[in-house]
Design a protein around this nucleic acid. Structure first.
Length: 441
RNA sequence: GGAGAGGUCGCAUAGAGGUCUAGUGCAGCGGUUUGCUAAACCGCCGUGGGGGCAACUCCACCGAGGGUUCGAAUCCCUCCCUCUCCGCCA
């Protein structure tokens, strides 16, 4: 399930408009409604026949217990009645199964409508809701006036021998960078620091998930069938390399009923992330701007429906805290309907300023999925003890994705002498204040 | 990978072709009793779907999927998972 038959019946117009806003085909909504009507009709018919058969079978048993010969004419006749019903049930159930599969498929192709105040349109409609810091703040005057030309991270990475794309390509392929020395330790430091902040300050429970998932999990968060061509697949064992920790962590509570007292549930998980990036070859791929394997700490939340809008603001702020403490200027974008994705209700992107490449880089994406993912995964909760289960709301946000943070740190904290200053919060983890050796030291 | 034992309504268990409409205990919810706690007693108490304004009613679900049968938790097949032992191994 995805958008939910119930809601489809209740407010088809809203779902239809939501699809149009997200540039998907609204006709699927009507096809789904037709399939649903057919399904209910067949269901009802099948149920009635089964009730008949159950009664008939019961009479066979009663007759035999009552002394009738099991192979006598009386029992044979009762048996026939049951068999006749059974034959028709087989036919109808086959039709029913096909209709259900069709409905399921159609529902999976109906997008989650965006919140009413989300700007309608494509990339151009994205709204910058706030910016933090001054992109020029790391400018350092050079003797004689002016500032020196900021170098892009790939030059810094190579000069300091901390990022090796060439050997990464040799041992795995293009887009699989190797981090060495301080570069490697920087990865480890960022992961540890992110997790420490989330767990000690923000009440997240740390999770270390598998890096592969089965098909059911990939379907749960919507990677299948939506983004199947973006995933690495281990066909031999029918496993998928995760594109984000969101997939295993959100699936943690698949097919579960939670108690209201457990909510909100907050998980912070580090994982490697694997993305084929099919179709993106050559586009913004210089250095480590877009790679096939990267590392990320992901925040995942399960919330009561009424609290999810506020939770999205909160989780976004938790990602912002990290950027602020790293001293990296950034901006927050409210993504438009056409640019936010299929399953999101509302999404904020955090973009950090990278002065070397002179671009804003997406380092976090924070989303409220409403009950869309929860329905797919059957994650419910009891609003009160003993009451009927209802769907939870799920949210997630990167906190944060590493490669572009590394880009921003190297480019923003670089010094004229070729070294890079370590941001204060990372120094205890890095064991040093500076990456590289200043000339004459 | 090989051999064996298992997977039943939140937990624990019964159930071995028809009286299973899956029983019982615990937990949970409501109530009675009670100075408080505890206990005792009474009632309720799985999920999904169909129909009904509603009381209610019908159908499906005993790890998953097939099969045998008039009828399957129960018999057969395949797969998944857990445990024990063996093999291999970071």
């Amino acid at each position: 399930m995805s958008v939910g038959v119930q809601r489809l019946r209740e407010e088809p117009d809203r779902i239809r408009q939501g699809a149009i806003d997200k540039r998907e085909d609204p006709a699927i909504v009507d096809r789904a409604l037709e399939a649903d009507a057919k399904r209910r009709h067949l269901q009802s018919e099948s149920d009635h026949l089964k009730a008949e058969r159950n009664a008939a079978s019961k009479r066979v048993g009663e007759a035999i217990r009552g002394g009738a010969k099991p192979d006598g004419p009386e029992v044979a006749e009762l048996r026939d009645a049951s068999t006749r019903a059974g034959a028709r049930i087989d036919e109808i159930d086959a039709d029913l199964a096909a209709t259900e599969a069709e409905l399921e498929d159609l529902l999976l192709r109906i997008p989650n409508p965006a919140d009413p105040d989300v700007p309608v349109g494509g990339e151009e409609a994205n709204l910058t809701v706030r910016t933090w810091g001054d992109p020029g703040e790391h400018e350092v005057p050079v003797a004689g006036g002016g500032t020196w030309a900021r170098r892009p991270h790939w030059e810094i990475g190579e000069a300091l021998d901390i990022i090796d794309n060439v050997r990464g390509a040799k041992i795995a392929g293009s887009g699989f960078p190797v981090y060495k020395g301080a570069g490697s330790r920087l990865q480890r430091s960022l992961i540890s620091w992110f997790l420490d902040v989330h767990t000690t300050e923000h009440g997240f429970t740390e999770v270390w998930p598998p890096a592969v998932v089965n098909a059911a999990s990939a379907r749960g968060t919507g990677q299948i069938p939506d983004k199947e061509d973006q995933m690495y697949v281990v066909t031999r064992d029918d496993l998928y390399l995760i594109p984000t920790a969101e997939v295993p962590v959100t699936n943690l509570h698949r097919d579960e009923i939670l108690e209201a007292s457990e909510l909100p549930i907050r998980y912070a998980a580090y994982s490697p992330c694997f993305r084929r990036e099919a179709g993106a070859a050559g586009k913004d791929t210089r250095g480590i701007l877009r790679v096939h394997q990267f590392d990320k700490v992901e925040m995942v939340m399960f919330e009561k429906p009424e609290d999810s809008p506020e939770a999205l603001e909160w989780i976004t702020a938790r990602a912002e805290v990290l950027l602020q403490r790293l001293g990296l200027p950034y901006r927050v974008l409210l993504m438009s309907t056409g640019d936010m994705g299929f399953v999101q209700r509302r999404k904020y992107d955090l973009e950090v300023w990278a002065p070397g490449v002179e671009r804003w880089l997406e380092v976090s994406s924070c989303s409220n999925f409403g009950d869309y993912q929860a329905r797919r995964m059957a994650i419910r909760y009891r609003p009160a003890p003993g009451s009927k289960p209802e769907l939870v709301h799920t949210l997630n946000g990167s906190g944060l994705a590493l490669p572009r943070i590394v880009v921003a740190i190297l480019e923003a904290w670089q010094n004229a002498d070729g070294t890079v200053t370590v941001p204060g919060v990372l120094r205890p983890y890095m064991g040093t204040d500076i990456i590289g050796t200043p000339p004459g030291a």
